[in-house]
């Protein structure tokens, strides 16, 4: 029971010290803990260890099913990062990306609020320099810096009794304490998804909030339906974490994604997935 709660809501949340003006804006600073700490894993006694896809792979996979992500770019060098930032517009976020990379925040592999070409160049150079041999092949993700004062969690998990489930929860630093979540068995219908939103206790967060419009329920339901569809299409998906899903002008956008599968080669079983992996490899190789 506890492990599922933690599995869903994420592990200990690491707060960066440099900012967070929570009186006004919650600023996205990169991936929060995704709940795969050792205490959590030790409870999954019946499952063999799975494979975690990189953030970029996770996002590519889920985007196919309609999960909304930011327009972000995968780059292989600092100059490419600058070009990407010019296209996206400042400020941007830069994150080191790779299959073997976890705990990005703890390792300082997420750089926020980069407001100029120089800042992007410097930060990206440092990120590439920070990569160790253990990280394997790496790239850098450049994404627009999004501001939001509402944060949700969407995800899937595999229940020992009921099999695959999809979850919607209130996110943010108090997520674990609030534990306001709605869960359904996969597959879900559009009606199920809408009822999940209605089942959250913190309904004030769903309506118009601090000058922002109400959350578009159809769009949020769409995220849940996309997760359900992804797991139906690929039963080797053991879990998905979209944490956080930020609400920007009432629309949900997932700014981090983590997909865990049963097998190392789970995604190579389909042509599409094959192409997906190749793309990311070639990008890294460039």
């Amino acid at each position: 029971m506890i492990f599922i709660l933690r599995r869903y809501l994420g592990g200990p949340f690491e707060l960066p010290t440099s900012h967070l003006d929570h009186r006004v804006w919650f600023e996205f600073w990169g991936p929060l803990g995704h709940g795969l700490d050792s205490a959590v894993m030790s409870n999954e006694q019946t499952s063999p260890p799975g494979t975690t896809l990189s953030e970029q792979q996770s996002k590519s996979l889920l985007a196919k099913y309609g999960v909304p992500f930011l327009d972000e770019r995968t780059v292989a060098s600092a100059p490419e990062a600058v070009s990407a930032a010019e296209e996206l517009g400042y400020p941007v976020v830069a994150k080191l990306n790779g299959e073997a990379i976890a705990h990005k925040t703890e390792r300082g592999l997420v750089r926020l609020n980069l407001g100029s070409a120089e800042a992007v160049n410097d930060a990206t150079t440092v990120l590439f320099d920070s990569a160790t041999e253990a990280d394997g092949e790496v790239s850098v993700l450049v994404a627009p810096m999004v501001r939001s004062n509402r944060e949700l969690i969407c995800g899937t998990s595999t229940d020992p009794q009921f099999g695959p489930t999809v979850l919607l929860g209130v996110g943010g630093i108090l997520a674990e304490a609030i534990a306001d979540v709605a869960i359904r068995l996969i597959p879900i219908t559009p009606q199920d998804a809408l009822e999940m939103i209605g089942d959250l206790k913190t309904q004030d967060l769903i309506g118009a909030f601090r000058g922002e419009p109400a959350i578009d329920r159809e769009q949020l339901a769409g995220v849940l339906l996309a997760l359900s569809a992804a797991v139906v299409a690929d039963p080797t998906i053991r879990s998905i974490d979209l944490n956080p899903v930020l609400i920007v002008d009432g629309m949900p956008v997932a700014v981090d994604a983590l997909v865990e599968t049963d097998e190392a080669d789970a995604l190579v079983e389909t042509d599409e997935a094959d192409a997906l992996v190749e793309t990311s490899d070639s990008e890294v190789a460039r």
Partner: peptide
Amino acid sequence: SLASDDRVFDGAMRQ
């Protein structure tokens, strides 16, 4: 019997 997360049961029954 083996227990599951109660909120999973709750959601399943709603569904």
